[in-house]
Amino acid sequence: MAKNHSQRFLDIVDDAKSRVLECTIQDVKIRKEEGEEFLLIDVRESHEFSTGRIPGAKHISKGIIERDVEQLIPDASTLLILYCGGGFRSALAADNLQKMGYTQVISMDGGYSGWKAAGYEIESGS
């Protein structure tokens, strides 16, 4: 289901991506397989998260991440990998977390849809 994003939205995503480190879904899969320590954060909306997610992901939706992140993840040097549906909202959230002082934030390009399309394991909703 392709999204028809507005040009203004794409412009702010491109702006955020100019400051954010990105990785691929394959990078995340390898990091997980190698046992690398990081927090995988799903920034999609609650209804999206409840239908399925990448195993081990924690949910902090983009709408509240700036408000709640310091209480949930007080160590600003924690390695965080954020994902959304395709990689746009996670880039916006990653940009804001960096502005808040988080020093190791990565946005996963391709998001949940790319992970699922690659045939990687997913957790079903509850």
Rank of each mutant, 00 (worst) to 15 (best):
C23E: 00
L72F: 07
I81P: 01
A93L: 12
C84R: 04
L80I: 07
Q71F: 13
G87W: 02
R44I: 13
A57L: 14
G52F: 05
R19E: 05
A94Q: 04
E22V: 06
E70S: 11
Q98Y: 02
V28A: 04
L82Y: 04
A93I: 06
K17M: 09
E37I: 15
S61G: 05
C84I: 04
Q98V: 02
A57Q: 13
G87N: 07
G56H: 03
G87F: 02
D15I: 05
E70V: 10
L92R: 00
K32V: 09
K58Y: 09
H59N: 10
L39P: 11
P74C: 13
K29A: 03
F38A: 06
C23S: 06
S46N: 09
S18M: 07
I30K: 10
I30R: 13
E34A: 01
G85F: 05
D15A: 04
S61A: 11
I54N: 03
K99F: 13
C23Q: 00
L72Q: 10
K32H: 05
V69F: 08
V43H: 02
I25L: 15
S61L: 11
L72V: 04
E48A: 01
R89I: 04
H59V: 08
A93F: 07
L39G: 02
D42E: 13
D75A: 13
I25M: 11
A93S: 05
T51K: 14
T51S: 15
K58I: 06
K99L: 14
K62Q: 06
S18H: 08
R19K: 06
A76L: 15
V43M: 03
A16V: 11
G87D: 00
Y83W: 01
G87V: 03
N96S: 10
A91H: 09
L39E: 03
A91M: 12
T24E: 08
K32S: 11
R67Y: 09
H59P: 01
I60P: 00
L97T: 00
E36W: 12
A94L: 06
E33T: 07
P55A: 10
F88S: 01
C84H: 08
G56C: 08
L92S: 00
N96Q: 14
A94C: 03
L39Q: 07
A16S: 09
I25R: 08
L92W: 00
S77E: 14
I73A: 03
V43R: 00
D15C: 08
H47F: 10
L39D: 07
E48W: 02
H59Y: 06
I65E: 08
P55G: 10
H47W: 15
P55T: 05
E36Q: 15
P74W: 14
E34W: 02
